[in-house]
């Protein structure tokens, strides 16, 4: 325990703090922060591929001007994304919460089996879900049309009809993510104070009153956070759309991510694609930061109240 040894220990501890954070920090800086800067830079250039090498021409705000004045497909995607977020997420929330309430009320027969089945859509590769529903919703040999055929209906072109395609894609997304909301809500319900619920059963005359006046207010934080989480993540949608419709027919199921992908990789418009990425990145960041601030303010108000 000589002073030299003490310094050694303190030095080692300081080194551990740096070493333990270094990999995460390096990953984030090199592969996430740098790309954002890179995109920002690229968005001011027109990039041309010549003989496998890129040629950069500085064009100033041209890419952004074009995006905000001439672009139509991207903005159709924005519109679809918003419709998608509103409809799909409300569907998931309502279905997920109702089912969670139902299971909580009804007692659980075969709970493990049920959980297992509900986990399936969450852990299966999204591309598989796209594949599945493409086969089911296929015009010619799809299961959906085969079933309709039994009743003498159809065939319906689920994914090819411009009026139906977005609804079909939204349906798949609801199917995909309702189980997730369900599991979150169920965990939320199960973590409620049992004695408060028992008190509520004594104080109320109907199940509806319990839900409306006791369970809903107590679940509000969980509901709010799940809702924000799902809304923000709904802007990530890509895999299923890629497989189901590739944004078509026309721009019926175009989403922002698909516009970016196409601009970058199919049309090789790197500068323009970077501009789209930058606009998307900053808009969604803004939404996330606002949502976060909202949740935190609510949380601190709650704390102040109790």
């Amino acid at each position: 325990m000589a002073p030299a040894g003490l310094d050694e220990k303190a030095r080692r501890n300081r080194r551990w703090v740096v070493v333990s954070l270094l990999p995460v920090a390096a990953f984030f800086i090199v592969l996430t922060a740098f790309p954002v800067v890179n995109l920002l830079g690229l968005s001011f250039f027109h990039v041309e591929w010549q003989d496998g090498a890129a040629r950069f021409d500085f064009v100033g705000m041209e890419n952004f001007r074009r995006l905000f004045s001439q672009e139509t497909v991207f903005w159709a995607g924005v519109r679809n994304n918003i419709v998608f977020a509103v409809v799909a997420v409300s569907g998931q929330m309502i279905l997920g919460f109702s089912m969670a309430l139902a299971v909580k009320t009804a007692g659980s027969y075969g709970r493990a089996l049920l959980t297992g089945i509900f986990l399936l859509p969450i852990v299966v590769p999204p591309i598989v879900i796209g594949t599945m529903w493409r086969l089911i919703m296929g015009r010619e040999f799809g299961l959906a049309n085969t079933l309709l055929g039994f009743f003498g209906l159809g065939p319906v072109d689920w994914l090819g009809d411009p009026d139906l395609a977005l609804a079909s894609v939204i349906f798949v997304d609801i199917w995909h993510w309702t189980p997730f909301v369900f599991l979150l809500m169920l965990a939320g319900l199960e973590s409620l104070d049992g004695e408060v619920l028992e008190a509520a059963r004594i104080d109320t005359v109907s199940r509806w009153q319990q839900i409306r006046h006791v369970i809903m207010p107590m679940m509000l934080p969980t509901i709010a956070i799940t809702l924000l989480f799902r809304v923000i993540l709904s802007f990530k949608v890509f895999d299923e759309v890629y497989l189901l419709t590739s944004g078509g027919p026309g721009t019926a199921t175009e989403v922002v991510n698909f516009s970016i992908y196409r601009t970058f990789f199919r049309q090789d418009q790197v500068g323009y694609g970077a501009a789209m990425s930058v606009v998307t990145l900053f808009s969604i960041s803004l939404i996330i930061i606002l949502a976060r601030a909202f949740v935190q303010r609510r949380a601190s108000r709650r704390e102040a109240a109790t």
């Binding site: 325990m1 040894g5 003490l6 220990k9 303190a10 501890n13």
Partner: peptide, 9 residues
Amino acid sequence: TQRDPGDRD
């Protein structure tokens, strides 16, 4: 004061 918790005996 500056010693590691493990080295204070």
